[in-house]
Design a protein around this nucleic acid. Sequence first.
DNA 1: TGAGTTAGAATGGCACCACCCGTC
DNA 2: GACGGGTGGTGCCATTCTAACTCA
Lengths: 208, 208, 208, 208
Amino acid sequence: MIITILSFKGGVGKTTTAVHLAESLSKRRSRKVVLGDGDLNRTALNWFQRGQSHGIDVGFTVFDGDDDPPHEYTDLVIDTPARPGDDEVLRLAEFSDCLVIPTNPAPGAIEASIGTLSRLRSLDDSRYRVLLTLVPPKPSRRGIQARDVLKQASIPTFKGMVQRRDAFMDAELEGVTVGMLKGKAALSASESYATVGQELWKLTKERR
Amino acid sequence: MIITILSFKGGVGKTTTAVHLAESLSKRRSRKVVLGDGDLNRTALNWFQRGQSHGIDVGFTVFDGDDDPPHEYTDLVIDTPARPGDDEVLRLAEFSDCLVIPTNPAPGAIEASIGTLSRLRSLDDSRYRVLLTLVPPKPSRRGIQARDVLKQASIPTFKGMVQRRDAFMDAELEGVTVGMLKGKAALSASESYATVGQELWKLTKERR
Amino acid sequence: MIITILSFKGGVGKTTTAVHLAESLSKRRSRKVVLGDGDLNRTALNWFQRGQSHGIDVGFTVFDGDDDPPHEYTDLVIDTPARPGDDEVLRLAEFSDCLVIPTNPAPGAIEASIGTLSRLRSLDDSRYRVLLTLVPPKPSRRGIQARDVLKQASIPTFKGMVQRRDAFMDAELEGVTVGMLKGKAALSASESYATVGQELWKLTKERR
Amino acid sequence: MIITILSFKGGVGKTTTAVHLAESLSKRRSRKVVLGDGDLNRTALNWFQRGQSHGIDVGFTVFDGDDDPPHEYTDLVIDTPARPGDDEVLRLAEFSDCLVIPTNPAPGAIEASIGTLSRLRSLDDSRYRVLLTLVPPKPSRRGIQARDVLKQASIPTFKGMVQRRDAFMDAELEGVTVGMLKGKAALSASESYATVGQELWKLTKERR
DNA sequence: TGAGTTAGAATGGCACCACCCGTC
DNA sequence: GACGGGTGGTGCCATTCTAACTCA
């Protein structure tokens, strides 16, 4: 299975999403997951470089997107560079079982996603999902409002949203996934991606 | 005076910084400020397109970075596309009175800034400043820690930091600057950029 | 008042003693204390260099022992290089109100102190004191045994002893004194030097 | 084979390391080990002077570093005076099969080692190893943290670390090595140096 | 419109428990 | 083998700040 993560704006948690969806997949029975880091900053590679020095195993393999992938895997998660062109998006959609498009609730990011995705009407709705990330905690309704705006533009979204949490920064700093950190906040953060991973799993069921 | 806003990662508040520093400059006596939107998403243009329909004047002019600037101005603020190359940074520094480099406290953004800036040792320290943006509110020490890390890498930073606040999203949504919104939060947000603007003004004093 | 810290072996807490006795003195009313770092590694200077970057004031001034001391002070604490010769010890004793000789309970350190000090019979007993440092915690009797051995050689010691504690490493790492750290351990560590400082104050009473 | 023990700070267990590595070597088949005491306090000579009166044989010979070594030996361990200069270190490295640099986890000692060793970039990495000594027992993470710091400065360390134990003082007091004492603590202490001795043996394999 | 209230996030302080060392 | 002490980890509470809601 091939999952491609892309976004039309930077800083929306693209690499965080790639890493944690890869982890979510790798926890399923007899799945060998590899994560291809195609980001220009090589954020995912840097992420786990910090952890490898502490001898930590995350359950999946990260490789440079410019290199060939490892020989054997069941699932490939691709972290793409930001701002792909329209044809590039269509090509990636053709190539992948599902496009995951993380977007934070900022007007600019939402607008960029809507602008591009409503232009690409040839995209199959079951082939992609927008994931709301960096959502402010609960008294704020930014997340729900953003999802409403996307729904009104008939753009499919994940039901699950990922809250904005310092634990994600901690995880990146330590070179691990949030699930490997201790504490209530980390657990909650981990669960949010687990939920999204489950949605993704169901969505791609018939294509496996 | 020419102020160039650049960043090595997306989603760190580059356009927000450009807009509010332009506003801060435009409030000084007999200054005519123009903001050149060079961002690939044209975020700044979209921002004020929303406001213009409400007949709002923000005190400065925004123009497409691919076009020529308006004929008369005293200060030019440039919002650049993300991820400039090393030579591009040096060229912009040569061209500008000051580079402003917004960075959020996430490890990836800090690392990208340090990586590039410590490589460019030919950069004059008085020619650029890193601005910490999207800083979590006070119980969190992420902002101070990030500034310490930058200081340790002997990278000059603005003393003032910009907190993460929903008011900035509101402002973008309304097509105005935060200073035009009501409420305590908006006032505080506006003041943080005013402080940075003052630092910037002092910094570029001798070059005016 | 001039207090000179010397030792006949390295790694017995000489700089730690100098720093915390300087602090103890500086807490007395209207005392201006300066600490001269004569150690070859400049440990005391490095110590507070770490703290100064955080804008911390320790209540006394540290200066390079090769330079002239600051103009105005009431008390001068000198951290000397290790292993002074016999004549050097006598010269320092002449020059100072009190020699403080930190020694840990290891056989080699005790032996070195006894060897040198019992050779220097011309030393006035009120002019110097051995301070037992890095003493293992209470079930261990190393500290008391060491003090007995010194007493048997009729070498004057401080009644107070300084326990071995991780808090001292923490303080050095943070560039502060233990009294500035939080926690029960740090408080206890701070009190032990306060006690020694009080003994030292009484001892040098008639010479002030 | 020539093993040189040196350190940039005093009181880090230099002589203890020299003695126990000499013992470790002397236990190998058909090895005649001599230990040259170059320390200014002649700690090693004093150490075994205490034991010789009890008619104890430690398996290797200790001689004064200012004298000529005994005529026949296969391995020479040298206990040097503290704080060698840069050129002295290079000369000793040239002269020896391996430099062993004991360092305790105190900030000052670690810093001194890093400062000197990272300056001497001409040193062959296979020619020296830092040995962490006097490491606090297990709940404390000082040892591991210190090793991480050294690793980050790309300074090679022994994998084995030597814990801080009263048994080492007992051994020095009795004039024997820890392996000759009874009790669980002494056994554990002995094993830690045996492990380091094994690492050292493998490291110098090709040079023998 | 403005003040007070509420929920949630994040840090700091605190007590409690586990592990290990050294003595009896 | 039992006990006292140091160190680190965990869980709990208090504090501070944000954003939304409510009431006058």
